[in-house]
Structure formats: structure tokens, C-alpha cells
């Protein structure tokens, strides 16, 4: 006998929206290069979540959300055959007001180098690095989200880090 049921209330979904909304919009924005389209995709992701049974996915909710969101983004990109770069507003950064002007300039330069180096990485390296360092996913979780093997995820992160490190070192020597 199948005892499957959906949740008797939507609290777990509301909690998931609160916890993951911003992270998913950020992730989808980077993939699509369009914040508004990203919001639509994330909304659809949560609508799909409403049809799921909590006891089946709550153990790996984060991976499920990122994977569904990613697949939806890939669908959008396939349909529209486009991949825009991130907008300037999204790629902007903030500086700490406690730093001196000289330190702020130095930090901005360092940030500029890092973000530029990241943007110049191949898309698959950018994605796994963002999942790892922006969204805090482990190699295994990234593997579950992207469908890549853990070894492949490790290699992509390693290669991406090495490239960024090389760019940083080169910029310091200039």
C-alpha cells in the first residue's frame, strides 16, 4: 500500500522559500544573466516543490532545489539559445567603510582581479566555484546538482582556483 501524502501544511515550503530564495535567485541570475528571468525560474522551482512529498526530499532539499533550478535555467537557455553575461549591477561589489581610502582602492583592485578572473573562467568552472564558495555546497552536493562526478567537480574547482591564483599573483607583480 502506498502511503504517500503531501505535507498537511505548507510550513516546510515557506521555510524553504525563506532559506533558499535569495541563493537560488543569485544562482539562476548568474546562469541566465537576467535577474527577472531568474526570478521566474525560481518561482517555478518553488511551485514544483509544492507538488513534492516532504519526507522524500527534505533530507536533500538544498540539492533538490539547486538541481531543479539549474535544469529550469538550462531549459530556458536552450529555448532562447542565449547566455547573457552577468549585468554590472549584479556583478558589483561593496567595500568596507572601515577601511582607509588607500586600503579601499587596494581591496577594490584585488576584488576586481578576482571577479574578472572568475568571469574569464570556462562556464563549468565558474558554476562549480560559485556553488562551492558562494552557496557553500560540498563536492558531493555539487555533483548531485550538476550530474558531474565528484572527481570531475574536484578537478574543475582545482583548475579554476589555480587560474585565479595565477591571475592574482600576476597582478601583484605588475
Amino acid at each position: 500500500m502506498d502511503r504517500r501524502t503531501t505535507s498537511s501544511d505548507g510550513d516546510w515550503i515557506r521555510l524553504a522559500v525563506r532559506r533558499y530564495e535569495a541563493r537560488l535567485v543569485g544562482y539562476a541570475s548568474h546562469l541566465l544573466g537576467d535577474v527577472e528571468r531568474a526570478r521566474d525560474v525560481v518561482q517555478d522551482t518553488f511551485l514544483k516543490l509544492c507538488t513534492q512529498q516532504p519526507d522524500r526530499i527534505q533530507a536533500h532539499l538544498q540539492e533538490w532545489l539547486f538541481a531543479v533550478c539549474r535544469n529550469a535555467c538550462l531549459d530556458v537557455m536552450r529555448k532562447e539559445k542565449r547566455m547573457k553575461p552577468m549585468s554590472d549591477a549584479l556583478a558589483g561589489n561593496q567595500t568596507s567603510p572601515e577601511l582607509s581610502p588607500a586600503e579601499q582602492v587596494e581591496q577594490q583592485e584585488s576584488a576586481h582581479v578576482i571577479l574578472n578572473a572568475l568571469d574569464e573562467l570556462p562556464h563549468n568552472q565558474q558554476e562549480v566555484i560559485r556553488l562551492k564558495f558562494q552557496h557553500g555546497l560540498s563536492y558531493q552536493q555539487i555533483s548531485n546538482v550538476t550530474g558531474l562526478s565528484v572527481t570531475n567537480v574536484g578537478f574543475l574547482i582545482h583548475t579554476g582556483l589555480k587560474t585565479v591564483r595565477f591571475r592574482l599573483t600576476a597582478s601583484e607583480k605588475i
Binding site: V17, E21, A22, R23, V25, G26, S29, V35, A38, R39, V42, Q43, A89, L90, A91, G92, N93, Q94, S110, A111, I114, L115, L118, I129, R130, F133, Q134, L161, V164, R165, L168
Partner: peptide, 19 residues
């Protein structure tokens, strides 16, 4: 050190939310 710098910069990026 590189990982920390990347993490720091990526987490500074603005997080758009749902409307």
C-alpha cells in the same frame, strides 16, 4: 588564501530576491 578571497568577494555580491 585564494579560496577565502573568492568566498569573500562572491558573498559580497548583492543577492536579488523574489518580487
Amino acid at each position: 588564501q585564494t579560496a577565502r578571497l573568492i568566498e569573500l568577494e562572491l558573498k559580497k555580491q548583492p543577492s536579488p530576491r523574489l518580487s
